[in-house]
Nucleic acid binder design. Structure first.
Lengths: 137, 137
DNA sequence: CTAAATCTATACTATTCCAGTATAGTACTG
DNA sequence: CAGTACTATACTGGAATAGTATAGATTTAG
């Protein structure tokens, strides 16, 4: 019931990029140092963010990473889904199939959890990095 | 970012007990059969619920398990905490110490996540088994 | 009083997932 | 064309998950 370490690193990395002047890029090494992310691991994380279309990369000397779209259009949910796939606080809310093996679709527990999950997801979607950067000291 | 299997079984077990006439008990074996829980595993789950004070047990022939208090006073949150400990959607919202190693307490991401977690926890606390049983078909 | 039923408590295990490392390869710049 | 930096994937040790197993304690019935 917890976001994993890679996702936490990704939050920090995207927040870092969102704090940059538009168009600027940061290399993996700089990112790793600035955000205390293991230097090899940061490559894997940025790879996931790039594939998800949240981040753009430039190769070669003076290459690095920058946001692929405005920080106002990148939410915590986007980053979580890039690293972990769809948010699901319960198995049965992820894979419908797995659920029906053991419990009916009328199960009131799952209905309640679905409502709570929807609220959580909506909140994660509402939290954009533009709004988060604005709150930074 | 997902409740585990044992917690799901526990939801079903408590829902089952909450559907019983007051004072009735169900044996582990019956519970396992009725709710499709592995028969040995159900013992472990009921053990956790008993230790948490949600369920009472009676030993010997005709023994079994029943709710330790009214279903209106047992929430989804109670069951989750009995099986998994405190709810935390993010490491840093669980162990304050671990957080400060890598990020300052001013981190806007964590502030946002804390707000969302509080909402989720409040919802889980509000969902009592009395209200869930009432919704059953 | 004893045997059977039932829970208690803990140890054990196989598999999967996590966090991180390693490396071979591709692209860009000067 | 040499060096820098990202791309993509394979690998690994350790922890967590999902169960299983078992020795023991308690209660009831006969």
């Amino acid at each position: 019931m917890q976001l994993n370490q890679a996702t936490d690193y990704a939050f920090r990395a995207v927040l870092h990029l969102a704090s940059l002047p538009a168009g600027a890029v940061v290399s993996a090494r700089e990112l790793a140092e600035a955000q205390a992310i293991p230097p090899r691991f940061v490559l894997k994380i940025m790879h996931a963010l790039t594939r998800a279309g949240l981040v753009e990369s430039r190769r070669g000397p003076a290459g690095g990473f920058g946001l692929a779209r405005p920080a106002a259009e990148i939410s915590l949910l986007d980053v979580i889904e890039a690293l972990e796939g769809p948010v699901a606080i319960h198995r049965c809310l992820a894979e419908r199939e797995a659920c029906n093996k053991h419990c009916t679709s009328e199960c009131p527990v799952h209905a309640a959890l679905r409502g709570l999950q929807d609220g959580l997801v909506a909140g994660l979607r509402r939290a954009t990095f533009a709004s988060l950067v604005a709150k930074k000291p």
